[in-house]
Design a protein around this nucleic acid. Sequence first.
DNA 1: CTGTTGCATTTTGTATACAACATGCCAAAG
DNA 2: CTTTGGCATGTTGTATACAAAATGCAACAG
Lengths: 221, 221
Amino acid sequence: MDGSHFPIARQALPEAAAERLRSLIIEGELAPGARLNERELSERLGVSRTPLREAFRMLAADGLLVQLPNRGAQVVALSRDDVRHAFEVMASLESLSGELATQRVTDADIAQLRAMQAEMEAAHAAHDLPNYYRVNRAIHDRINAIAGNPILTQTFRTLNMRLHALRFRSNLVPAKWDQAVGEHRDMIDALATRDGARLRDILARHLKAKLQAVLETMDTP
Amino acid sequence: MDGSHFPIARQALPEAAAERLRSLIIEGELAPGARLNERELSERLGVSRTPLREAFRMLAADGLLVQLPNRGAQVVALSRDDVRHAFEVMASLESLSGELATQRVTDADIAQLRAMQAEMEAAHAAHDLPNYYRVNRAIHDRINAIAGNPILTQTFRTLNMRLHALRFRSNLVPAKWDQAVGEHRDMIDALATRDGARLRDILARHLKAKLQAVLETMDTP
DNA sequence: CTGTTGCATTTTGTATACAACATGCCAAAG
DNA sequence: CTTTGGCATGTTGTATACAAAATGCAACAG
């Protein structure tokens, strides 16, 4: 018997509900601060309240919801300071990720990253924002994977998820966009030459710029 | 007013259950790898299965449990690599914490830390391991608080919680203990002189030594 | 003796009923 | 007119009943 167990996602109603809720939050269907009515949501998602409440607990642990005693759950509303703090931590984690990646990256990885970079630049040239973001994130994820530290990856993912709830994927000033693309190319160069210090430096600047861009899209305190 | 003003915190049964389970896991009552029977545990904790399952979700999010579909929850068993990875991330976060703290620390903070350091050295001199660990942790928490980044604090706490499940609080080689105490004194000195680079350096060494100490207490792969 | 099949039992997963609490409204007192 | 008390209503919190899946065991075929 080989170990090929089918990925039949048979079960996991709470996970499925959590996934669905995540989408609703990230897409703004459930706005920051919105209170979540259990009965209404359970009907909308087609599950009963029990698995839905377990989904709430998961999202609360991710920092996407806050749960008030006897008053239910509501979508978290990040302040500008929250965003600054999150980016401070993310910058530190990205630095670590980059440093580890320079130690472990293979030539095959570099080739793959360069291909993704090309794809991203194509999206940039075509002003295709959704695809740009998709590939952008894929590159960051790939570097994270190369770093080879699952706990780092998970910690990072959790932080990222919070920020995605901000839906800052809308506006992007052309000059900043150009700069970001250039920084990405530099990042991969630094990786290719195994220059950890330079990579750290680029990442720090990259994140600082991204923070500014995000803050500019925020009208709420 | 009746006299029975119990802390009516009748609420938050899931939180209470989670807290209790955390203790049971950290104290080894529930060993790594142990499967948790819902009915048995719910009777033991005096709550029904519904809030207990929500507690499971919370602990799973913290990384203390893993939940397998249709097969319940079990206490996570960390591998040596998991521990290495966790320490890698923790070192990065501690560095950030130290750097931020040097920027924001006040003289009053320094005085308080020195008092705690004295308390810790007293515990060291008295070979009082439990108190040593308590004050040790309090110092780290204090520095974290001085850093003034709640998201950093929370991320750090989550990671720490996983490691506490290892119960490495038992053995400690005298030489290592002496060294750790000295490093703590150096840390506070570096903070007092606002020497971020030196603090980073000390923290990196401190964490590396701690990792070694923890790994030595592990017999499981 | 080994391995498979089917059944009985146990355990997890989900829905729902009921209890505790919060909220909004209206009436009545000041 | 404002404030307060109490009731009606809705919402969350917990327990439990029921369904589905896994597990263990024994009988049986090879």
